[in-house]
Write a protein that binds this DNA or RNA. Sequence first.
DNA 1: GAGCATAGTCCCACATGATGAGACTCTGGC
DNA 2: GCCAGAGTCTCATCATGTGGGACTATGCTC
Lengths: 226, 226
Amino acid sequence: MEHTVTAVGVIDKAARVLAAVEERPLDLAALMVATGLPRATTHRLAVSLEGHGLLRRDPEGRFAPGLRLIALGRAAARALHLPEVARPALEALRDDTGESTQLYVREGDRRICVVSLESPHGLRTIVPVGASLPLDAGSAGHLLTGALDPTDGWVESVGEREPGVASVSAPVRSDDGQVIAAVSVSGPIDRIGAHPGTTHGPAVATAAARVEAALGRVSSDGPSSL
Amino acid sequence: MEHTVTAVGVIDKAARVLAAVEERPLDLAALMVATGLPRATTHRLAVSLEGHGLLRRDPEGRFAPGLRLIALGRAAARALHLPEVARPALEALRDDTGESTQLYVREGDRRICVVSLESPHGLRTIVPVGASLPLDAGSAGHLLTGALDPTDGWVESVGEREPGVASVSAPVRSDDGQVIAAVSVSGPIDRIGAHPGTTHGPAVATAAARVEAALGRVSSDGPSSL
DNA sequence: GAGCATAGTCCCACATGATGAGACTCTGGC
DNA sequence: GCCAGAGTCTCATCATGTGGGACTATGCTC
């Protein structure tokens, strides 16, 4: 795997250690293999990261991501101001399509609605801000697992989360390709049809791209999979 | 502010940089002041961290926590297996008190229920796993803001989240004192009274301590505020 | 219980990578 | 147009990180 090289070699190595344990906790030997570093170096870096709470030992003594990363991850999400930054694009999407629009972010194995704008139609989908929904139902949920990489830039679902409701979603990605949010349009099948992506997909993808642009510089100058 | 010193000075400095931007984004000058590092050093470390996605520039060019931290924070939360590890303690608490018990974690400015065990009583509070609730109502919400440090080890609330419902919560902390979850007992005021902490507080605090113990080595050997 | 392989930890001579003062360019305020 | 201070970059210096190997601990096999 390609590794980012910067002007500070120790940080490069430390980043490799953090990346190595992201998938699953590793003992020292496995961490050596995963990072390609000599044992003494691996040990010294891991213990230093542990000292700062960036790694921890699980009950089996293996190295795992540390709890400081939870707090720092929260700080990163907070600093993004995603709901505020995304709102204009979702308003335009609501006005353009006439349907309810939402923005979801992933939290653990669920998704949380962080922006919700309702359609003027009498019959409309209503998702309150703060609503917690599963990942395995609805177009936004599928996107937020990161397992989909839609070639058209959007995915649709029909009747998955709720009978009679269809939705289209597009991913908001960081510069390194990670899905950080999903923009959605949703409405009754009777009005938006069984293939809402055909009609609304491009507009949803455009809104997601606008959110990405509005976020400005997001994440590193590192390798991008976009 | 005291800084952790380990065997790798560059990681010590990088951790200071990450800590400095946790509260709010900082430009280079402010980051110098916050970390006490010379400008060239600060710049070089910040750009290297940015290269790995651990920092990013916000639209004003200030350094902020990077999006890799969101993914790593998720990995840290996942590796903890908190719901599974906490379940036995919550079962014992439910059996001991006869009331519904829950475990909440913080997500942004809300809290999510990750374990929910219901009382055998016909009249009982029901919070589904996955429920997303605000932080400003209910004992668990107050705890998860991190602003409370209850001397008795628990806090109670009455009728805040829902009329007729009272609750007691105790914090689950990492070794460095951060609140990572809240253990709660909740039930109708008519049965558990207007001061449920008097009756159930010690048991809730004990359950939280059991969860902490069950987590084993959690976070660093760094300075503890406990 | 002995033997062995491999885990984790630590030491230290040495090579090299990080340091930081200062030079340089850019930008915004006056 | 001037200036202060932002951000970026260079490079001589030396302090630090490196990594081979020694050591201890642990778990497994016989």
